[in-house]
């Protein structure tokens, strides 16, 4: 490509990578918390502690996804159209998961019946597992390349998306988010919930490093399009090695920072590895969607840039403030309703 990298299309490609990074970093631990809910919360009070660690902030975290989706639509409508119609059934399952999970958070504790609460706990678990796994599969397919035809349409059908490499990426994202969630719980909860989260984090960190190492090696073999992401994938695995050490050294806050850095590094590696493609065609490289042939016009990108430049910092400020307000650990005393 001779357009270079100093252009609006590339800027928006980077911004979309940033939005996905924000989503995976923030909602990643929400998913992890939801996945660990049945294992770490043994009774109702404990489960309420687990849920309330993310209670005030999960919804704001999810908006990173909506913004990433909206930004793809606005900046790269062809990418949005091809990917969302092509990954149709996967997205359908993700949506089902996000719907039941969101309602479950809000409704679960509004009735004392244990059957009611068990049902919503199940919804939280399933609604966390599905997206945590399927987003990995989707990005695995983006890395690997999919069957894009001359018209820029995805023509590979559903089953082609469930190839071994992408499924491995799904497992990797599932386990990485679970670890991220365990570390988040170790920072945000008190008592037995916190202890269990720490216990779980150690073996999880080893398993995650193993799965990610496998995914890393396979990724180097799998991809030959776009820019070579250099040592980034290796760095991601190395960061997880540090996480293992940190969990055994009981430095959980640092461990959380390092799983966060792993997520940042993996997303960066994926996006750098694709660039300038946004969807690589396995039929003919000439059919690939790129940041240039899938983008909106300069005017739209300019308007969007101005809006993003003003409002992304504002969002970051108030969202950080909300984390500051709820910085305290959640314990059983916070969730017990005083008897009237």
């Amino acid at each position: 490509m001779d357009q270079g990298i100093l252009n609006l299309e590339t800027l928006w490609f980077v911004l979309i990578a940033v939005l996905w990074t924000g989503f995976f970093f923030l909602e990643g631990f929400d998913f992890g918390v939801g996945i660990l809910l049945p294992f770490i919360g043994k009774d109702d009070d404990e489960r309420r502690v687990v849920i309330n660690t993310i209670g005030p902030t999960w919804d704001g975290n999810e908006v990173w996804l909506l913004t990433a989706g909206g930004a793809m639509f606005a900046a790269f409508p062809i990418w949005y159209a091809t990917m969302f119609s092509g990954f149709y059934l996967a997205l359908f399952l993700i949506l089902i998961g996000l719907i039941v999970r969101g309602v479950a958070f809000e409704y679960r504790s509004k009735s004392p019946s244990s059957e009611w609460r068990r049902t919503w706990d199940g919804a939280i678990f399933v609604g966390s597992v599905l997206p945590a796994f399927l987003f990995g599969v989707a990005f695995g397919n983006l890395v690997r390349g999919v069957q894009i035809d001359a018209a820029g349409e995805y023509v590979g059908g559903f089953w082609a998306l469930l190839n071994p490499y992408s499924l491995l990426m799904g497992v990797a994202s599932l386990i990485l988010f679970t670890l991220h969630g365990a570390l988040f719980l170790s920072l945000k909860s008190k008592g037995v919930v916190c202890d269990r989260a720490m216990e779980v984090a150690r073996p999880l960190s080893i398993a995650t490093a193993g799965v990610l190492a496998l995914a890393m090696v396979w990724s180097y073999v799998q991809t030959d399009s776009g820019v070579v992401p250099g040592l980034l994938p290796i760095a991601a695995v190395a960061l997880l090695g540090v996480v293992i050490w940190l969990t055994y050294a009981k430095l959980f806050a640092w461990a959380f920072v390092f799983t966060g850095l792993t997520i940042v590094t993996v997303v960066a590696a994926i996006f750098i590895g694709m660039y300038p493609n946004v969807m690589t065609s396995t039929i003919d490289p000439a059919y690939s969607l790129t940041v240039f042939n899938a983008s909106s016009t300069t005017m739209t990108l300019q308007i969007m840039s101005i809006v993003a430049l003003i409002f992304v910092p504002i969002v970051l400020v108030y969202q950080s403030w909300s984390y500051w307000v709820f910085r305290k650990r959640v314990g059983p005393e916070d969730v017990r309703t005083p008897a009237h």
Binding site: D59, G60, E62, T67, A74, M304, V315, Y318
Partner: peptide, 28 residues
Amino acid sequence: SRFVGDIFGAPLAIEALLAFFIESTFLG
């Protein structure tokens, strides 16, 4: 989406950035 994306996508993205973040964060 391909036909209208240049016009239609922007308000959707702006809606998320300007409205959804405010609603969800401050409702929490």
